[in-house]
């Protein structure tokens, strides 16, 4: 493989990884607080993509209004998901939560199937995201550069909220001890809602970028990226935000490099991602960043 091609793949890997990273954060934050793998999380990508598309199609909104609105709407649906599927089960065994998560995932996918139909829709990519930069033999769509930049900004904003604000402190406290958190006079349900809001909004941002990258959207588009991001969260150390980001980027690079180095096995890239998951679970179940807490 030539150096140019290698650099090209590196950039592609980082770009793909940034999308995984944004989704993985939501898994890891919800896990950090509820000890729940929120399997409906990936479907929020689909929600965001459709919301962004219909904002532009039905209401003729420009993208810079439609995208933020879609992110806010998806954040609200994340809170609704918690209220409807998880809040009634706060005292229940964790397996009930997990089953509820899977149910919520199926519900969202099939609801979309009924309401919108299964035929993939073309996602209208705004022109400003369609340029391709050509430098020294490298072909770089601007979107490929924007995604890691957007991810970086959002992650910095999130870290600020989690580590510097009062609500962020409450989130970290809740990840350690629910009851003691309530004894501080903190409304735990609001903190959990905030967790879902943040995680779902980040997934929404990722979903919109995903839809621009692969501009055919369908009700099941969130399933595979969701699962991959789950792998990324485990790889980084579930419960750890920085770990989730790291895991996302590593998984993106891993996938793209598998394809680049072993083109014959390119068809099996998803299988390799799951092999990686099995490997992590076998040899380092706490992931790269170790401890299962938001820290």
């Amino acid at each position: 493989m030539s150096a140019t091609l290698f650099v090209q793949q590196l950039i592609n890997g980082i770009s793909l990884g940034s999308l995984y990273a944004l989704i993985a954060i939501g898994y890891t934050m919800v896990y950090g607080i509820l000890r729940l793998i929120n399997f409906a999380h990936g479907d929020l990508l689909m929600v965001a993509a459709y919301a962004a598309l219909y904002g532009m199609l039905l209401f003729s909104l420009p993208w810079f209004i439609s995208f933020p609105l879609a992110i806010i709407a998806t954040g609200a649906i994340g809170i609704l998901l918690d209220r409807a599927a998880y809040k009634p089960l706060r005292q229940a065994p964790r397996i009930s939560l997990l089953i509820s998560a899977i149910g919520a995932s199926f519900l969202m996918e099939n609801l979309a199937l009924v309401l919108i139909g299964g035929v993939p829709k073309a996602f209208h990519r705004p022109n400003c995201f369609s340029h391709v930069i050509i430098i020294g033999g490298l072909h770089i769509p601007v979107l490929t550069i924007y995604s890691p930049l957007v991810t970086l900004l959002l992650v910095l904003g999130l870290l600020y909220i989690v580590f510097k604000t009062r609500a962020g402190k409450a989130m970290r406290a809740a990840s350690r001890d629910f009851e003691a958190t309530r004894l501080m006079g903190i409304d735990l349900d609001r903190i959990i809602a905030l967790t879902f809001l943040l995680g779902s909004s980040l997934a929404a941002a990722s979903g919109i970028m995903w839809a621009m990258k692969y501009p055919q959207i369908n009700p099941f588009m969130g399933v595979l990226p969701g699962l991959k991001a789950f792998i990324a969260a485990v790889l980084g150390g579930i419960g750890n935000i920085v770990g989730a980001v790291l895991g996302g980027f590593l998984l993106g690079l891993f996938e793209i490099l598998i394809v680049a180095l072993l083109p014959d096995l390119a068809e099996y890239r998803d299988a390799f991602a799951f092999l990686l998951l099995i490997g992590v679970l076998l040899f380092r179940p706490t992931g790269i960043m170790g401890e299962p807490f938001i820290e």
Binding site: K169, R172, A173, S175, R176, D177, E179, A180, L183, F293, I294, E295
Partner: peptide, 10 residues
């Protein structure tokens, strides 16, 4: 509270 219940991660 009983058992201190401080937030060790903070």
């Amino acid at each position: 509270p009983e058992g201190r219940r401080i937030f060790g991660n903070l």
